[in-house]
Design a protein around this nucleic acid. Structure first.
Lengths: 206, 206, 206, 206
DNA sequence: CATGAATGAGAATTCATTCAT
DNA sequence: CATGAATGAATTCTCATTCAT
């Protein structure tokens, strides 16, 4: 019998190598030769495990999406359900945690985003993710805002997250603290618009 | 009136074709053969006029950047200098005018953005543009806010512009009215944070 | 009764799978992976039992040659030695029995034939077979014809067998009855040429 | 302007090289690298002119089919329409002229034949050809035989042509004279079956 | 100016075979 | 015995670029 459990070793190994290479040279210049060399295996093995370059890229995409989702969920669920604003801040923070701010990861995200414009499979994955972010934000905001207000603020937060992230990707980096501060400020502004005397408890470190 | 030389005919012709093809198949699958066929000329001519594929892509990038800037400037300058908030809204509107919301243009933008991650020449162009947007916003906001406040609000607006745009690119489209409304709401919220009794004149259609 | 070793199980299993796959996708597209999958075993086992793909193909070839020969011999020997024309007809019938007319078998034959043009080992096998067919025909015909006449008629019958078979392979099928009828007609014509008043007994169902 | 008329030079050049290589190493071992090297051009040019290996093989097939047809037609039409048997013999001769008996051409034919079993495009071409041969034979035989008789004799001649050819391909060669003699014999035998006192004029060199 | 023929480097993919388990 | 992981050579196809006309 051949070595058992190799798929569980090789697949993550190849996906990691893929993300590294994309982060370094860009999706357009990434070749299976580079990836396999980085992973320390032969090029042919990619077809063995992923059916081809496309399959590997697809799985890589799913992996970073899942990592993002897992990180955000952990942060959010670590807080009580009756602290909605804190939970929103946790969601924001999760989108800017150190793993996501790794320049190579940011480059990979952008590459996949551009790719998704012309690849329905990737586009679908991205849309699901976008909807999930929005949905979680709305759910928490609903605890202290009207349906319409929650919808609008959630949309704004989501846009700020992506916008800060995108501008950061271009200019060389994002400061998590800066990002969280800006979004906090947006939330306070929005809450203020509707609650001149807001009773929502906002953490003192705002 | 000088007679137009071939360069003045061929270059825009090829740049238009480039943007169309990128919008349709993506930067990664765009070939000079496709571009030249679309433009109705031979493949070799691209090297003649642009020195190669890279030169053509670079010029194409500069073209859409210039179009965006020109559009934004026209809208901004059409308003009095002492209507800063209106001018900010004009800047926002310019970033979401119909030309920029053409799906093919959005795809091209995203493609160039991803490409810029690994191409210093493109990255420089993008950074210059980002700085210009921020600078204009700050300049107008300075007329009714402190330096620090202006900086922060400008950063937020820029992030919202890019974030709304990015999410729209993915989900299939952006509604200009929605975008402007969201950013208006942000501005009002931010102004409210600092001026509980704001004296800034905000257009009545807010 | 000796217990069957694995070789006696595996070899026919793999040869059958080989013929099936060749019949379905053609020799050129047949891979060991396909064959082993069809046989329900691993790819590596082919080298274990046949020393490689070539060995398996060679054995497969020998198998269908043997099947054809066995079938023809059985039919021929089932008839009395002093019914030469009936024996000739039995040889013809054997070449068009249902096993040989299976479209997958016909495709395999043709594939091996083409392959034999460039593979001396296969060519040798085929030549032996061709000679055997001719030899049997001549042997029977010699009982009622001169050496020269027997040689010529045998050559014609062999050519007709292969020609009918080849044309049938292309056009989608052969009718055994049609084939036998045509060759009968040829034999009668040939006999008639030399024996205006032939004394050879030809079966009444001619 | 580039060199004009290159397609008319390159295409036959590449097709010739293809037939030569297939004739030498077999279809299965033929690579575009071999073909282009033989033709003295680069491998890429094959895609330029034929869209890929398949296109080249297809065109090569069409070429040898056309050559055979042209040769047969010329021979047939060189004889008076009221010499049907002579015309039939011309058709037979055309199928065994020196060009068709070149071992490389025979190998190519056989390769294509096997390939056609799994390639509908090739199969269609072959069927058209088979039908044409049969049709011409029937047309000529109709001039001296009944419809049914003409059909049967034509079928037999066609089978003999292919069978002799196939057996020759395997055993290393065909003698045109032998082939024609055998088929002549068949024709005479068949004519004799129906016309005990045949009035059909058969050339004296029979 | 413009063409498109031609090149050649590079990329993905295929696949028979080997071999540790 | 048997597996299937792994390899690496071979092959097809792509494509930017060059260049003779």
């Amino acid at each position: 019998m051949p070595k058992l459990g190799m798929p569980e070793i090789r697949k993550p190994q190849l996906i990691d190598a893929t993300l590294e290479v994309i982060g370094e040279v860009g999706l357009g210049k990434t070749t299976v030769a580079m990836i396999s060399k980085r992973a320390g295996v032969s090029a042919g093995i990619i077809n063995h495990y992923f059916g081809g370059k496309d399959g590997l890229l697809n799985q890589s995409m799913r992996t970073i999406l899942r990592e993002l989702n897992d990180g955000v969920r952990e942060r959010r669920e670590a807080l009580p359900a009756d602290w909605p604003i804190e939970r929103v801040r946790a969601i924001v923070g999760g989108n800017f945690d150190s793993r996501q701010l790794d320049p190579r990861v940011m480059k990979t995200w952008l590459a996949f985003w551009a790719q998704a414009m012309h690849d329905e499979e990737l586009a679908r994955l991205q849309r699901v993710n976008e909807k999930r972010l929005l949905s979680h934000l709305r759910y928490e905001l609903r605890k202290c805002l009207s349906r319409e207000q929650a919808r609008e603020v959630a949309t704004g937060i989501a846009a700020l997250i992506d916008g800060i992230w995108l501008r950061g990707a271009l200019s060389g980096g994002v400061e998590q603290a800066e990002a969280v501060k800006l979004i906090d400020s947006f939330i306070r502004g929005q809450l203020g618009l509707w609650h001149s005397t807001s009773r929502v408890q906002i953490a003192s470190n705002y």
